[in-house]
């Protein structure tokens, strides 16, 4: 469905992503794990169109979408939940959801109800300013906002960042639920344990290169992964 071929991304002189290739199959949950600065966010930001790659390509449903503008990529069905949630603090919860559907011109009521059924907490806070939500609620809102664009592929940049373990569990439960409802998920995480348990396929990224690939469970029991990312 989504195919990344030999992607290289530079920031000024720094090579953040040094030629990575991977694939995301329709209906799957794929995770990229790696340490700080490995290039995870850069990879997702490049797919989303925020950063232009130096070389390589991004292919989606057979179409080359490399270097397209972010709004064209959203329109094709790839949506990014950015690192740090990036809720619009002054907009209400409901406005945050509506702005997630900015490209759509049809009726949003069913989708708003769908997001509220996934995250009942958001419904109670519908008129509250986004900035007044707790970290966990903001993450839910960020995911809900992304779902409002009806993505085919939902990309998430460290959804567990800064959240209490119980909330992290909730978030991962929701990720699986969303996936069951037909949304393909590309997830990046430092919480390798949760991510690999949830994912069908995992890729390990080290300083801009993919060093290991395998099924989620397989990587969980891999000695190198255990030592580097699971602390066991």
């Amino acid at each position: 469905m989504l195919k990344i071929n030999d992607l290289k991304v530079n920031y000024g002189g720094i090579e953040a992503v040094k030629g990575i290739s991977f694939e995301v199959n329709e209906g799957s949950i794929v995770t990229l794990i790696g340490a700080n600065g490995a290039g995870k966010s850069t990879t997702l930001r490049t797919i989303a169109g925020l950063v232009k790659p130096r070389s390589g390509s991004v292919e989606f449903l057979g179409e080359d979408i490399t270097g397209m503008a972010p709004n064209d990529i959203v329109a094709r069905g790839i949506t990014l939940v950015p690192e740090g949630r990036k809720i619009f603090a002054d907009l209400t919860v409901l406005e945050n959801l509506k702005i997630g559907a900015y490209m759509r011109k049809d009726n949003l009521n069913d989708d708003i109800e769908w997001v509220y059924s996934l995250f009942p907490r958001l419904k109670e806070r519908s008129w509250q300013a986004g900035g007044t939500l707790s970290g966990g609620e903001q993450q839910m809102l960020a995911v809900g906002r992304a779902l409002m664009s009806r993505p085919k592929v939902l990309m998430m940049d460290e959804p567990s960042l800064g959240l209490a373990p119980l909330i992290v569990r909730d978030i991962f439960t929701i990720i699986k639920e969303i996936n069951k409802q037909g949304v393909t998920v590309l997830l990046i995480e430092q919480n390798a344990n949760m991510a690999l348990k949830t994912a069908d396929t995992g890729y390990v990224l080290e300083t801009g290169r993919i060093t290991l690939t395998g099924a989620g469970e397989e990587l969980l029991s891999n000695e190198a992964v255990k030592a580097a990312y699971l602390g066991t």
């Binding site: 959203v74 900015y102 664009s149």
Partner: peptide
């Protein structure tokens, strides 16, 4: 209102 706060996230919304 969104763009005045955050260009990048606004772009991610398709704006």
């Amino acid at each position: 209102r969104a763009v005045s706060k955050d260009f990048e996230t606004s772009q991610l919304m398709g704006i």
